[in-house]
Amino acid sequence: MSQKRKRSEEPPDHNNVFRSATIEDRSSTFIGIFSPTSKPKELQSLDEIKSASHKVLAWRRESNQQSITGGTKYTIDHDDDGEKYAGKKVEKVLDGMQVIGSCVVARWYGGVMLGPARFEHIETVSREAIQKWKDSVAEEHAKRRKVEADAAESKRLVKTLAERDQSISVLRALALEKEEKLRRVKAASDREDAPVGEAKPADGSKPAIDYATLPLERLKMMEKAKDATLSFLLKRIDKAEVELVGATGKLPDV
Protein backbone atom coordinates (compact mmCIF):
# COMPACT_ATOMS: atom_id res chain seq x y z
CA MET A 1 0.00 0.00 0.00
CA SER A 2 1.49 3.28 -1.09
CA GLN A 3 0.50 6.51 0.52
CA LYS A 4 1.92 9.95 1.19
CA ARG A 5 1.04 12.81 3.51
CA LYS A 6 0.67 16.40 2.37
CA ARG A 7 0.81 19.40 4.58
CA SER A 8 -2.51 21.25 4.53
CA GLU A 9 -2.24 24.61 2.80
CA GLU A 10 -5.26 26.02 4.62
CA PRO A 11 -4.45 29.31 6.29
CA PRO A 12 -5.00 29.52 10.06
CA ASP A 13 -8.74 29.56 10.75
CA HIS A 14 -10.25 31.98 13.24
CA ASN A 15 -13.75 30.53 13.31
CA ASN A 16 -13.14 27.59 15.63
CA VAL A 17 -12.79 25.11 12.77
CA PHE A 18 -9.64 22.95 12.70
CA ARG A 19 -8.33 20.92 9.80
CA SER A 20 -5.97 17.98 9.49
CA ALA A 21 -3.35 17.60 6.83
CA THR A 22 -4.58 15.61 3.82
CA ILE A 23 -3.83 11.96 3.21
CA GLU A 24 -3.53 10.74 -0.38
CA ASP A 25 -3.62 7.04 -1.09
CA ARG A 26 -4.03 5.55 -4.60
CA SER A 27 -5.73 8.70 -5.91
CA SER A 28 -8.14 8.98 -2.97
CA THR A 29 -7.84 12.03 -0.76
CA PHE A 30 -8.93 12.35 2.90
CA ILE A 31 -9.13 15.39 5.18
CA GLY A 32 -10.60 15.76 8.67
CA ILE A 33 -12.35 18.88 9.94
CA PHE A 34 -13.34 19.41 13.59
CA SER A 35 -15.23 22.14 15.41
CA PRO A 36 -16.23 22.24 19.08
CA THR A 37 -19.02 24.73 18.35
CA SER A 38 -20.34 24.32 14.79
CA LYS A 39 -23.52 22.36 14.21
CA PRO A 40 -22.89 18.96 12.58
CA LYS A 41 -24.74 19.73 9.35
CA GLU A 42 -23.03 23.13 9.08
CA LEU A 43 -19.65 21.43 9.21
CA GLN A 44 -20.76 18.84 6.67
CA SER A 45 -21.91 21.62 4.31
CA LEU A 46 -18.65 23.58 4.15
CA ASP A 47 -17.94 24.84 0.62
CA GLU A 48 -14.39 23.51 0.68
CA ILE A 49 -15.61 19.88 0.82
CA LYS A 50 -18.69 20.32 -1.36
CA SER A 51 -17.11 18.28 -4.18
CA ALA A 52 -16.10 15.34 -1.92
CA SER A 53 -17.46 11.88 -2.77
CA HIS A 54 -18.29 11.26 0.90
CA LYS A 55 -18.59 13.62 3.85
CA VAL A 56 -18.55 11.25 6.83
CA LEU A 57 -19.88 12.98 9.94
CA ALA A 58 -20.01 12.27 13.66
CA TRP A 59 -20.82 14.40 16.68
CA ARG A 60 -20.64 14.15 20.46
CA ARG A 61 -22.38 16.43 22.93
CA GLU A 62 -23.56 16.48 26.53
CA SER A 63 -26.89 14.75 27.10
CA ASN A 64 -29.80 16.29 28.98
CA GLN A 65 -30.36 12.94 30.69
CA GLN A 66 -29.07 12.50 34.21
CA SER A 67 -26.62 9.71 34.95
CA ILE A 68 -27.44 7.34 37.83
CA THR A 69 -23.92 7.92 39.19
CA GLY A 70 -24.26 11.70 38.87
CA GLY A 71 -21.66 11.93 36.09
CA THR A 72 -22.17 13.61 32.73
CA LYS A 73 -23.79 11.55 29.97
CA TYR A 74 -23.07 12.14 26.30
CA THR A 75 -25.04 11.79 23.09
CA ILE A 76 -23.05 10.52 20.13
CA ASP A 77 -24.24 9.84 16.59
CA HIS A 78 -23.04 9.80 13.00
CA ASP A 79 -23.85 9.98 9.28
CA ASP A 80 -21.95 7.56 7.00
CA ASP A 81 -22.87 9.59 3.89
CA GLY A 82 -22.54 6.51 1.72
CA GLU A 83 -19.26 5.27 3.24
CA LYS A 84 -20.63 2.29 5.17
CA TYR A 85 -19.34 1.91 8.76
CA ALA A 86 -17.16 5.03 8.43
CA GLY A 87 -19.27 7.19 10.77
CA LYS A 88 -18.64 4.76 13.62
CA LYS A 89 -14.91 5.22 13.11
CA VAL A 90 -15.23 8.98 13.59
CA GLU A 91 -17.47 8.38 16.62
CA LYS A 92 -14.75 6.18 18.08
CA VAL A 93 -12.18 8.96 17.77
CA LEU A 94 -14.49 11.60 19.30
CA ASP A 95 -15.28 9.33 22.23
CA GLY A 96 -11.69 8.21 22.72
CA MET A 97 -10.39 11.79 22.78
CA GLN A 98 -13.22 12.84 25.12
CA VAL A 99 -14.22 15.94 23.18
CA ILE A 100 -17.50 17.70 22.57
CA GLY A 101 -18.08 18.82 19.02
CA SER A 102 -18.53 17.69 15.44
CA CYS A 103 -16.05 16.08 13.08
CA VAL A 104 -16.42 15.50 9.35
CA VAL A 105 -14.07 13.48 7.17
CA ALA A 106 -14.21 14.34 3.49
CA ARG A 107 -13.09 11.71 1.00
CA TRP A 108 -12.57 12.24 -2.68
CA TYR A 109 -12.70 8.77 -4.24
CA GLY A 110 -9.93 8.14 -6.77
CA GLY A 111 -11.33 5.11 -8.52
CA VAL A 112 -9.35 2.47 -6.62
CA MET A 113 -10.97 0.58 -3.73
CA LEU A 114 -8.79 0.84 -0.60
CA GLY A 115 -10.47 -1.74 1.59
CA PRO A 116 -9.86 -1.46 5.36
CA ALA A 117 -7.11 1.14 4.76
CA ARG A 118 -9.78 3.78 4.23
CA PHE A 119 -10.95 3.37 7.82
CA GLU A 120 -7.39 3.87 9.09
CA HIS A 121 -7.13 7.10 7.10
CA ILE A 122 -10.53 8.28 8.36
CA GLU A 123 -9.46 7.77 11.98
CA THR A 124 -6.07 9.40 11.36
CA VAL A 125 -7.40 12.64 9.88
CA SER A 126 -10.18 12.81 12.51
CA ARG A 127 -7.66 12.46 15.31
CA GLU A 128 -5.32 15.07 13.81
CA ALA A 129 -8.08 17.65 13.33
CA ILE A 130 -9.23 17.21 16.94
CA GLN A 131 -5.64 17.36 18.19
CA LYS A 132 -5.13 20.68 16.39
CA TRP A 133 -8.05 22.08 18.36
CA LYS A 134 -6.63 20.67 21.61
CA ASP A 135 -3.25 22.21 20.82
CA SER A 136 -4.94 25.55 20.14
CA VAL A 137 -6.73 25.43 23.49
CA ALA A 138 -3.51 24.51 25.30
CA GLU A 139 -1.66 27.37 23.57
CA GLU A 140 -4.38 29.82 24.56
CA HIS A 141 -4.23 28.66 28.17
CA ALA A 142 -0.44 28.96 28.13
CA LYS A 143 -0.68 32.52 26.82
CA ARG A 144 -3.20 33.41 29.52
CA ARG A 145 -0.99 31.91 32.24
CA LYS A 146 1.99 33.88 30.90
CA VAL A 147 0.02 37.14 30.96
CA GLU A 148 -1.02 36.44 34.56
CA ALA A 149 2.53 35.46 35.56
CA ASP A 150 3.98 38.59 33.91
CA ALA A 151 1.45 40.77 35.71
CA ALA A 152 2.36 39.19 39.05
CA GLU A 153 6.08 39.61 38.32
CA SER A 154 5.59 43.26 37.34
CA LYS A 155 3.72 43.91 40.59
CA ARG A 156 6.54 42.29 42.58
CA LEU A 157 9.19 44.30 40.78
CA VAL A 158 7.36 47.60 41.27
CA LYS A 159 7.37 46.98 45.03
CA THR A 160 10.94 45.65 45.05
CA LEU A 161 12.36 48.58 43.09
CA ALA A 162 10.74 51.10 45.44
CA GLU A 163 12.35 49.26 48.36
CA ARG A 164 15.70 49.19 46.56
CA ASP A 165 15.49 52.96 46.08
CA GLN A 166 15.04 53.47 49.82
CA SER A 167 17.97 51.14 50.58
CA ILE A 168 20.18 52.91 48.04
CA SER A 169 19.34 56.28 49.58
CA VAL A 170 20.23 55.06 53.08
CA LEU A 171 23.46 53.34 51.99
CA ARG A 172 24.56 56.28 49.85
CA ALA A 173 24.16 58.63 52.83
CA LEU A 174 26.04 56.18 55.04
CA ALA A 175 28.86 55.85 52.50
CA LEU A 176 29.19 59.64 52.31
CA GLU A 177 29.23 59.86 56.09
CA LYS A 178 32.00 57.23 56.41
CA GLU A 179 34.06 58.78 53.64
CA GLU A 180 33.70 62.26 55.14
CA LYS A 181 34.78 60.96 58.53
CA LEU A 182 37.82 59.36 56.90
CA ARG A 183 38.70 62.64 55.20
CA ARG A 184 38.49 64.46 58.55
CA VAL A 185 40.77 61.91 60.16
CA LYS A 186 43.29 62.21 57.34
CA ALA A 187 43.05 66.00 57.42
CA ALA A 188 43.72 66.08 61.17
CA SER A 189 46.61 63.67 60.72
CA ASP A 190 48.15 65.86 58.05
CA ARG A 191 47.53 68.99 60.21
CA GLU A 192 45.55 70.62 57.45
CA ASP A 193 44.01 73.89 58.62
CA ALA A 194 41.53 74.18 55.79
CA PRO A 195 38.01 73.45 56.99
CA VAL A 196 36.42 70.26 55.72
CA GLY A 197 32.80 70.45 54.62
CA GLU A 198 30.03 68.39 56.05
CA ALA A 199 28.96 65.21 54.29
CA LYS A 200 26.46 66.01 51.60
CA PRO A 201 23.10 64.40 52.08
CA ALA A 202 21.70 62.25 49.33
CA ASP A 203 19.99 64.32 46.70
CA GLY A 204 16.26 63.91 47.22
CA SER A 205 15.25 66.33 44.50
CA LYS A 206 15.25 63.73 41.76
CA PRO A 207 11.68 62.85 40.86
CA ALA A 208 10.62 59.32 41.75
CA ILE A 209 10.17 56.90 38.85
CA ASP A 210 6.67 55.57 38.32
CA TYR A 211 7.69 51.93 37.97
CA ALA A 212 4.10 50.82 37.38
CA THR A 213 4.20 52.42 33.91
CA LEU A 214 7.30 50.52 32.74
CA PRO A 215 7.32 47.26 30.73
CA LEU A 216 8.37 44.04 32.44
CA GLU A 217 11.70 43.67 30.65
CA ARG A 218 12.71 47.21 31.67
CA LEU A 219 11.78 46.45 35.28
CA LYS A 220 13.94 43.31 35.23
CA MET A 221 16.90 45.30 33.90
CA MET A 222 16.42 47.98 36.54
CA GLU A 223 16.31 45.39 39.33
CA LYS A 224 19.72 44.08 38.22
CA ALA A 225 21.10 47.63 37.96
CA LYS A 226 19.90 48.56 41.44
CA ASP A 227 21.31 45.34 42.92
CA ALA A 228 24.64 46.29 41.38
CA THR A 229 24.37 49.78 42.89
CA LEU A 230 23.65 48.33 46.33
CA SER A 231 26.67 46.04 46.02
CA PHE A 232 28.87 48.97 44.99
CA LEU A 233 27.70 51.12 47.93
CA LEU A 234 28.32 48.30 50.41
CA LYS A 235 31.87 47.98 49.07
CA ARG A 236 32.38 51.75 49.47
CA ILE A 237 31.23 51.54 53.09
CA ASP A 238 33.45 48.53 53.81
CA LYS A 239 36.45 50.24 52.23
CA ALA A 240 35.91 53.45 54.24
CA GLU A 241 35.54 51.47 57.48
CA VAL A 242 38.73 49.49 56.81
CA GLU A 243 40.66 52.69 56.16
CA LEU A 244 39.19 54.32 59.28
CA VAL A 245 40.41 51.39 61.40
CA GLY A 246 43.84 51.76 59.82
CA ALA A 247 43.89 55.52 60.46
CA THR A 248 42.49 55.56 63.99
CA GLY A 249 43.23 52.09 65.31
CA LYS A 250 39.63 51.88 66.48
CA LEU A 251 36.87 49.63 65.33
CA PRO A 252 34.06 51.46 63.55
CA ASP A 253 30.89 52.28 65.46
CA VAL A 254 28.27 49.59 65.16
Score class of each variant (00 low, 15 high):
146 K>L: 12
216 L>M: 06
146 K>M: 15
209 I>C: 10
191 R>V: 01
212 A>K: 04
178 K>N: 11
182 L>V: 01
142 A>I: 00
188 A>W: 01
178 K>E: 11
151 A>Q: 08
143 K>I: 02
196 V>L: 05
161 L>R: 02
158 V>S: 08
155 K>G: 06
166 Q>L: 02
142 A>R: 14
206 K>M: 02
212 A>S: 11
208 A>W: 04
148 E>M: 07
205 S>V: 08
173 A>P: 02
210 D>A: 14
210 D>L: 07
200 K>G: 13
173 A>H: 15
214 L>S: 08
146 K>D: 02
161 L>H: 03
204 G>R: 06
146 K>G: 02
143 K>Q: 14
190 D>S: 00
144 R>W: 08
164 R>T: 07
164 R>H: 12
151 A>W: 12
187 A>H: 04
183 R>D: 13
176 L>I: 14
197 G>Y: 10
144 R>Y: 09
196 V>R: 05
189 S>R: 01
170 V>R: 13
211 Y>K: 05
202 A>N: 10
174 L>S: 08
170 V>T: 07
166 Q>K: 11
165 D>N: 07
196 V>P: 10
193 D>G: 01
177 E>M: 14
201 P>A: 12
197 G>K: 13
146 K>T: 07
165 D>M: 09
174 L>K: 06
184 R>A: 09
185 V>H: 00
180 E>P: 01
176 L>R: 15
162 A>M: 15
156 R>S: 09
166 Q>T: 10
147 V>Q: 00
203 D>S: 08
161 L>D: 06
214 L>V: 03
189 S>Y: 03
174 L>R: 07
167 S>T: 12
184 R>S: 11
155 K>W: 01
169 S>P: 07
213 T>R: 10
198 E>I: 15
215 P>V: 02
177 E>P: 10
151 A>K: 07
175 A>L: 11
175 A>R: 07
151 A>F: 13
216 L>T: 12
186 K>F: 08
217 E>N: 05
200 K>P: 13
151 A>Y: 07
206 K>N: 10
201 P>W: 11
142 A>F: 01
205 S>Y: 14
206 K>Y: 07
195 P>G: 00
190 D>V: 04
184 R>E: 04
208 A>S: 15
152 A>S: 12
209 I>M: 06
208 A>R: 12
150 D>G: 06
194 A>C: 05
204 G>K: 09
199 A>I: 11
171 L>H: 14
157 L>W: 09
145 R>E: 06
169 S>W: 15
161 L>P: 05
198 E>D: 09
172 R>G: 09
180 E>I: 00
179 E>I: 04
194 A>N: 12
168 I>F: 12
168 I>H: 00
163 E>T: 02
191 R>E: 05
206 K>E: 11
213 T>M: 09
204 G>N: 04
187 A>G: 03
192 E>S: 02
173 A>G: 12
217 E>M: 07
179 E>L: 10
146 K>A: 09
190 D>C: 04
200 K>E: 13
216 L>K: 03
